[in-house]
């Protein structure tokens, strides 16, 4: 069964259709890229999947379960992690505490009132930080991190929930070009080893073509193409609306 099945998702803002009738599936363990020019409706689509926005019509099924109007925290509990276009972390905490907070929530221990939070799940937190390459930064205040490292931290936070599906909105935006490939390779490896599916939007075409197993192309709120890197490269419609403008 597909991890995620999206059927006819539609959303308008004040009469302007941002997403119209988008349908696709995400398969276990795959890296699926959602691309398209600015304003194509990628972020709106993402926010409907994560529960941040309710769709006007259509539905989202997570392993067959309808999650369309569930709030984000329920969707998270069902095994969907996500990162945001503008990184969202807990700025008053240290790097490790960020991950510990996520782990506590995952283990449903967030309502405990006694033992200090930072004594929980230390090994697990450090293992996650090691995975994303932040092991040496664990004790630093997260607010001091460089932007690329913030993205890694956000990834670690999302991974703490052991997601079956990871939604990443522009995971490399704002990250230095040299670092981008490394970051996405990391995600791809994690996906493969953990059988976790990843759906991501991305502007950097090199990244998309090198990491994605499959690519979805959106324009003006609709899906216009779907396929692997080779077929998308060759698709004339995609070239016209997207690569054409990018070139």
């Amino acid at each position: 069964m597909s991890i995620l099945e999206v059927q006819g998702l539609t959303k308008s803002f004040g009469g302007v259709a941002a997403v119209r009738g988008v349908s696709f599936t995400v398969e276990p363990g795959e890296m699926l890229a959602l691309i398209g020019p600015n304003g194509a409706g990628k972020s709106t689509c993402f926010n409907m999947l994560g529960g941040q926005l309710p769709p006007d019509s259509g539905q989202v099924l997570l392993q067959g379960q309808n999650i369309t109007f569930l709030p984000p925290r329920h969707i998270c509990r069902l095994g969907v992690g996500r990162t945001f276009q503008i990184t969202q972390i807990f700025a008053s905490m240290s790097v490790r505490e960020n991950v510990q907070t996520a782990l506590l929530s995952h283990h449903r221990q967030s309502w405990k009132l006694w033992r200090a939070a930072d004594t929980h799940h230390i090994t697990e937190a450090e293992a996650l930080l090691y995975k994303v390459g932040l092991a040496t930064q664990a004790a630093r205040p997260s607010a001091e991190l460089a932007y690329g490292d913030l993205k890694r931290l956000e990834l670690a936070i999302a991974l703490a929930g052991q997601p079956r599906l990871l939604l990443m909105d522009e995971p490399t935006a704002g990250v230095a070009p040299a670092e981008r490939a490394g970051l996405m390779d990391l995600v791809a490896n994690l996906a493969r080893e953990g059988q976790m599916a990843v759906l991501f939007t991305e502007h950097d075409m090199e990244i998309v073509f090198s990491c994605a197993d499959r690519i979805l192309v959106m324009d003006h709120g609709s899906l216009i193409a779907e396929g692997n890197a080779t077929s998308i490269r060759a698709n004339p419609q995609v070239q016209a609306v997207y690569l054409g403008t990018a070139a």
């Binding site: 925290r73 972390i89 905490m93 995952h106 967030s110 309502w111 930072d118 703490a160």
Partner: peptide, 18 residues
């Protein structure tokens, strides 16, 4: 910590299930 997480970033806090 969960409370502070909600303050620091409501979006992130909700996204980790809080």
């Amino acid at each position: 910590f969960a409370l502070r997480a909600s303050r620091d970033s409501t979006q992130r806090a909700e996204a980790i299930g809080l």
